[in-house]
Every structure is written in structure tokens, then in C-alpha cells.
């Protein structure tokens, strides 16, 4: 397997890269490459889009790399390569993000990314820390061996509300259920950070790498 991690100037790429390298070595080999070369994406078997920061900033930075979004559309949406979006990288699959104004996303999974905006003052934002998942689609290979109640690390102030509930594979409870994992066809997105979720996170990464959608 040959994994591209998209490098578009988003913060902590090193931790994502190191976690994927660890997962690949535990699976018996493969290569992980940080890349922003649109033409090169065709040479990879898996594509990962990390992301920290605001939806609009991430979209602006992706758009600033000539041909990158078009190449992602081609490789992921048309050629159907396994794709994992992490945190904002997951949110970018939506139609629209509402962080710092209205910004169009890729439109791969219908829905909007909106503020968590709790009514209860005890609910602090960002939603930061370890929270347990409620797995809805227990048959999906991405959640294989990750039973009800596994904890993953979240840090976000906005959340993905999908139009189609069947695109939500897992939720997390933070005052109300928030989308924790989205998926359809060859697409997976996690609101949490698998690269920061210790052994549980590595297991998710290995499940993604072993997935044949």
C-alpha cells in the first residue's frame, strides 16, 4: 500500500505521518508520503486529508495549490480510492462550512458543518478531550474490533450535520449527539484524531488501510 497524506500547510502533519508509519509497519509494510503534487496522486492507493484550524482557512489553502482539489475529485470521487478525512479534513467533504462565513466544501457527503453552540454553559467549546463513540454501523470494516464505548481524542468547535443519516457511522455525545465518523462508498471521515488516539487510533488507521471498499 502506498499512502498519500495531503500536505497543504496544515499544522501537525508530523504526528499524522508518524502514526501512519507506525500503522503501516505493524501491518507489514507500505509507504507513507506527504505530498501536495496534484499529478502524483494517481500513484497512491490511499489518500488521507488531515486538517486542523478553520474550515474556510483549510479550503483556502487547498484551493491555493493549483489543481489539487481537481485531482482529489478525480482520484477520490471518480476513481474511488479509499479516502480518510481527519477532523477538518472530514468536514471538508460537506457541501458547506459555516466557520468564519459560508464556504463551499467538496460536496462529497451532503450536509453542513455548523457551530456546536451549546445551550448549557457547562458544555465548554472546543469539545476537547477523550469521548466514547456510539457506533451505528457496526458492520463497517473501519470499526472492526472497535467495540461500543471506545474512546478517541476530539478537539473541535464545529460539527458535521449530514443530510442523510445513513452517512453517519458513529456519533459522540456532547450535550447532544455529534457526528464522530462519516462514511459512504470509499469515503471515511473522523471528527476525532486517530493519530492522537493511542492504540485505539492506530487500530482505526489500520482498519482504514486494510479496507477494500
Amino acid at each position: 500500500m502506498n499512502v498519500a497524506i495531503i500536505d497543504y500547510g496544515s499544522g501537525n502533519l508530523r504526528s499524522a505521518t508518524k502514526a501512519f508509519e507506525q500503522a503501516v509497519s505493524e501491518l507489514g509494510g507500505g509507504t507513507i508520503k506527504l505530498t501536495k503534487d496534484p499529478d502524483g496522486l494517481k500513484n497512491f492507493s490511499h489518500i488521507v486529508l488531515p486538517g486542523v484550524g478553520a474550515f474556510s482557512d483549510c479550503m483556502t489553502r487547498l484551493s491555493a495549490i493549483d489543481g489539487l482539489i481537481e485531482s482529489l475529485q478525480e482520484q477520490v470521487f471518480i476513481k474511488a480510492k479509499p479516502f480518510l478525512g481527519i477532523c477538518v479534513g472530514m468536514q471538508l467533504m460537506a457541501d458547506v462550512g459555516r466557520e468564519h462565513g459560508k464556504t463551499d466544501g467538496f460536496g462529497w457527503i451532503p450536509g453542513e458543518v455548523i457551530s456546536i453552540s451549546p445551550h448549557n454553559r457547562n458544555i465548554k467549546v472546543p469539545h476537547m478531550g477523550w469521548n466514547d463513540l456510539q457506533i451505528i454501523d457496526t458492520t463497517h470494516p473501519f470499526v472492526q474490533d472497535l467495540l461500543e464505548g471506545v474512546h478517541t481524542y476530539f478537539v473541535h468547535s464545529y460539527h458535521f450535520v449530514t443530510k442523510d443519516r445513513s452517512h453517519v457511522l458513529a456519533t459522540v455525545n456532547y450535550g447532544k449527539p455529534l457526528t464522530a465518523i462519516v462514511g459512504r462508498d470509499n469515503l471515511i471521515g473522523t471528527q476525532f484524531h486517530p493519530e492522537k488516539s493511542q492504540r485505539t487510533g492506530l487500530r482505526f488507521i489500520k482498519n482504514f488501510l486494510g479496507w477494500r471498499p
Binding site: G11, N12, V52, G53, A54, D57, P126, M128, V155, H156, S157
Partner: peptide, 8 residues
């Protein structure tokens, strides 16, 4: 915060 996000 504007550059890297409030989360960090």
C-alpha cells in the same frame, strides 16, 4: 489562533 486555529 488565526493562523493555526484556536484548538492549538
Amino acid at each position: 489562533a488565526n493562523k493555526f486555529g484556536s484548538q492549538c
